[in-house]
C-alpha cells in the first residue's frame, strides 16, 4: 500500500524536532550526540522517501554518505567526550564553562 509523501515528511520532522529538543534539554554530552544522530537520521528518512518519490537514486547515495559520515562523527565525538570524562568525574555540560564572556 503506497504511503503519501506527506506522511514521511511529517514523521521525519517529528524525529528532527525530537532531536533538537534532546540537544537543548539533555545535559549528558553522550545523549546530546545521540540526539544529533536523530536529526541526521530524520534527514536520511527524507532522502530515502524523496529518492523513492522522484525515482532518483542520488537520495539513496546521499543517505549512505550521511550514515558513513555520521559514524565518523560519532567516533570523534566519543573520543572528545571520553577525554573530558577523564578529567571530570561526572560529565554535565552545564559544569563545563571555563570559557565565557
Amino acid at each position: 500500500m503506497p504511503v503519501a509523501i506527506g506522511n514521511y515528511i511529517a514523521l521525519s520532522s517529528v524525529m528532527f524536532f525530537i532531536g533538537v529538543a534532546g540537544v537543548l534539554l539533555r545535559r549528558n554530552p553522550l545523549v546530546m550526540l545521540m540526539s544529533i544522530e536523530l536529526m541526521f537520521n530524520a534527514a536520511n528518512l527524507l532522502f530515502m522517501a524523496f529518492a523513492r518519490a522522484w525515482l532518483a537514486n542520488a537520495g539513496q547515495v546521499f543517505a549512505f554518505l550521511v550514515i558513513t559520515v555520521a559514524a565518523a562523527e560519532a567516533a570523534i565525538g566519543l573520543a572528545i567526550v571520553v577525554t573530558t570524562f577523564r578529567s571530570e568525574k561526572n560529565v554535565d555540560v552545564d559544569e563545563i564553562r571555563l570559557l565565557r564572556g
Binding site: V20, F50, G59
Partner: peptide
Amino acid sequence: EAALKYLILSSTATGFMLYGMALLFG
C-alpha cells in the same frame, strides 16, 4: 571544552543544514 562545545553546536547546525538539503532534494 572548546572541542566539546564546537562538536555539539556545529553538529547541531549541520543537522539543520542536512535536513535543509533533504528538503531541497525533495
